[in-house]
């Protein structure tokens, strides 16, 4: 394939960024992948893509991140991208209660369209706006405990916990994948062709690779 060095990786994980419009999904992504933040970045239309590699446990993990548009009208388009995703960062804005209240609807979206074993992390963004906080850390943490989600608060603006949030979810995915791999040496992660994502269920690789390899699915 003639890969450049930074194209080398041991694992490729597809992760989606979801959540209400304006909570800062695109800025979390640009902070993580390019260390950039833009106060007035344009709204995401449909789905946008970025990538970054991280070392975890001596392995190179490449995160392929799909940043989705938050507006409800786009759900039909964006939910198609959940397929094959092994992780989801579900983002809300700590200064906007409604974006936290909508988290349940987003979880339902994931249940309806994503792999049942997808790793979900709830991300309370804009933690720099302390004086405007409307959702307490405790409330969100309690919710996550109940739902079995990981939880973190971030500030894409101040670059707080952004790296950590991605790192944690990738570690969690890696943990599951490597456990699966030990359980089944013939599992899908034993040999992953480039361009394909890994499924987190043993033997579930077919679905995810067909998602990224499928042809002529413009109207699916």
């Amino acid at each position: 394939m003639g890969s450049k060095p930074d194209d080398d990786y041991d694992y490729l994980f597809k992760v989606v960024l979801i959540g209400d419009s304006g909570v800062g999904k695109s800025n979390l992504l640009s902070r993580f992948t390019r260390n950039e933040f833009c106060l007035e970045s344009k709204s995401t239309i449909g789905v946008e893509f970025a990538t970054r590699s991280l070392p975890i446990d001596g392995k190179t993990i490449k995160a392929q991140i799909w940043d989705t548009a938050g507006q409800e009208r786009y759900r039909a388009i964006t939910s198609a991208y959940y397929r094959g995703a092994v992780g989801a960062l579900l983002v809300y804005d700590i200064t906007k209660t409604v974006t936290f209240e909508n988290v349940e609807r987003w979880l339902k979206e994931l249940r309806d369209h994503a792999d049942a074993n997808i790793v979900i992390m709830l991300v309370g963004n804009k933690s720099d706006l302390r004086h405007l906080r409307a959702v307490s850390t405790e409330e969100a943490a309690a919710f996550c405990e109940k739902e079995g989600l990981s939880f973190i608060e971030t500030s894409a603006l101040e670059s707080t916990n952004v790296e950590l949030s991605f790192k944690q979810i990738l570690e969690e995915i890696y943990g599951i994948v490597s456990k699966n791999r030990m359980a089944s040496e013939e599992g899908p992660s034993a040999s992953v062709p480039k361009g394909n994502t890994i499924a987190i269920t043993p033997g579930g690789g077919d679905d995810s690779s067909s998602a990224s390899k499928s042809k002529s699915k413009c109207c699916s």
Binding site: I45, G46, V47, F49, G195, S212, K213, S214, K217, C218
Partner: peptide, 18 residues
């Protein structure tokens, strides 16, 4: 494009939408 796993909707959606 498609052999690489890229779908037209993944890039042309925004073109059309905007």
């Amino acid at each position: 494009i498609e052999d690489n796993g890229l779908e037209f909707l993944q890039f042309a959606f925004r073109w059309a939408n905007c």
